[in-house]
Design a protein around this nucleic acid. Structure first.
Lengths: 336, 336
DNA sequence: CGCGCGCGTTGGAGCGCTCTAATGCAATTG
DNA sequence: CAATTGCATTAGAGCGCTCCAACGCGCGCG
């Protein structure tokens, strides 16, 4: 920077002003400085800038795993807006473990990110509260009472209702649910499912199989269902990954979907629409969620304001894994 | 830091040593400093640290788009190893445009990342060379002669040969290829395909349909193929996304895969194995590629050594989208 | 004509750390 | 017993920038 100043015949401070596109610099000098910088191949040092300005133009994102398309797509949304606005993304994965998440968060805070986006965090509420007290925080997909952060949420009850309505309208009554365990959204969807079944006087037919938002959990659930004397006529999976696992497991056992069994997923991740999957599912607008999260975060960074909760409405996408139940009722399996 | 030093009754320098887990500090003081830091909730400032030490413990990753599972999975591999080793990831997406890529790279360099991983970059060779001259660079999936960077490559010729061998062994001769355009790997796969067809005396049956590594390109190719008087008996798609697009397009037109037409993909992204897709494809070990890239990069960062090229061998995964061609030869479509 | 004002510019302090060289001190050695 | 060695500790410079207060200067105004 000193070199540029010397080369342009101005002070270091002036170079700083030009590099930051600040007003109140004469066109003449602005051009001279730019030319000098160009000539010397000067590249401002963001570390020094951050240290002096106490602003990093950097946002931290913590998610479970990039290999899970749901998270990757949210990160994609955040990235898109961030690059438009000149923000940089510092990425950390928690691998669905609270401990690793905390470590990742601590590191981000050492880098003095201007804000943090936590996607479906697993951390305890108190850790989240502590983070939110230190830096602007936006949480996606999980709501925690009493934490001073912004929230981007999906109306899980509504999403679940859409699923049940759809299945019941088709004539299904024996509707099982493979749940997502304790991960964000899991308890909500399970709760909404149970309430919905009860409200429809189908509580007796309700069946929850515990899972955890992974394909393996779906395959596992398929195995368990096939081990029972009777299959339900429809399954509501906690998310598309679980649905994919179910689809695979049932397919291998020769169960026809949707002829013998209907399946509904949740998320509408990119694989869901593939012709050969063609999963009926609830769409969560991941990219939009990511963008909105960053938008709220940046707004929060420079305007101190009360925290907000943004609830997005999911929609049902009906594809080919759902159909009316078989006329002869639920499928009875021969004894294994 | 000053506060911690005062609280612990030692000098700032000693606090620095303790925070960095340096040797030659007495256990007694180490404990005192740690306690003081804990008590005051001291969090080291990574910016200041980087500025002073000229090391950021940060690595930049530039890829096309996180919403493309291939890239997300590579990023996932990088992230995994990075977090194990205490490195932070700064992420940028180029959206398949050289200009945006250059901008993202420039920003990363302002942040003084210790090194950069470029996944299938689209930039011109000279820009890549310039970057490699400034900072350690590892490129994944694209080789550029004369650039002083490390390379993690897949043997595209071998991968393509595996596909052709498989299809020819099944009895296919009319094998078309939907290519990936100019993106990394595209020209290589097309070239290997054409050479392979020639070597098998099938040059006359070769047919290249231009595409670009997206699902839309696959759907588009399906449309074009269906518009021709005669379909090939097998299609080798530039990647799984293209294959998925083809699958969708053909399915909608009522073409049975693999009964009437075989399809092979490339990458083996996570969707490929789903029961209802069950795509025969060439596996590229994405996570492994990501880890290896970071490994090479970090090694390069602290050991100045000549650059290396690591060639990984792909493998063929045979699933359900390939079968012997129909006995009555290639499918003839009724005139549209 | 002198004074205040605003614009463009500048010097210098300071952001929070690391790193080098120097220092103190106890143990080891000839 | 003085000299040497090695370990633990520290002072202080400096990393590359931003930001604040101050400054010079031309201009309008009383």
């Amino acid at each position: 920077m000193d070199d540029v100043a010397r080369e342009a015949g101005v002070s270091r401070a002036l170079v700083s002003l030009v590099m930051r596109d600040q007003p109140n610099v004469s066109e003449d000098r602005r051009a001279r400085v730019r030319a000098a910088a160009e000539r010397l191949g000067y590249r401002p040092n963001a570390m020094a800038r951050s240290l002096a300005s106490r602003r990093t133009k950097t946002v931290g994102v913590i998610l479970d795993d990039l290999r899970n398309p749901f998270f990757a797509e949210i990160a994609g949304g955040v990235e898109g807006l961030a690059s438009e606005l000149g923000y940089q993304l510092l990425l950390g994965a928690g691998g669905r473990q609270a401990r690793r998440e905390r470590a990742a968060l601590a590191t981000l805070l050492e880098y003095r990110v201007d804000g943090v986006i936590l996607v479906s965090p697993r951390m305890r509420a108190r850790d989240l509260a502590a983070a939110a007290a230190e830096v602007p925080v936006v949480m996606v997909g999980r709501h925690v009472r009493g934490v001073d952060a912004d929230f981007v949420l999906i109306d899980e009850t509504h999403g679940t209702e859409l699923v049940l309505e759809h299945l019941v309208a088709l004539g299904h009554e024996a509707i099982a649910h493979v749940d997502g365990g304790k991960g964000a959204g899991g308890p909500q969807r399970r709760g909404a499912y149970l309430r919905g079944m009860r409200a429809r006087r189908l509580a007796a037919r309700a069946q929850v199989i515990s899972g955890d938002f992974t394909e393996e959990a779906g395959a596992d659930a398929a195995r368990r269902l096939l081990g029972e004397p009777q299959l339900p006529t429809a399954i509501f999976a906690a998310n598309d990954l679980v649905a994919a696992g179910l689809l695979g497991g049932l397919d291998r056992a020769g169960v026809q979907v949707p002829a013998e069994l209907s399946i509904v997923g949740y998320d509408n991740i990119s694989i869901a629409h593939l012709a050969h999957v063609s999963l009926t599912t609830v769409d969560q607008p991941r990219t939009e969620m990511g963008r909105l999260a960053l938008e709220l975060l940046l707004d929060r960074i420079d305007n101190r304001r009360p925290s907000v909760v943004r609830m997005l409405e999911p929609t049902l996408v009906v594809r080919s894994t759902t159909a009316v139940p078989r006329a002869d009722g639920a499928l009875t399996l021969p004894a294994a």
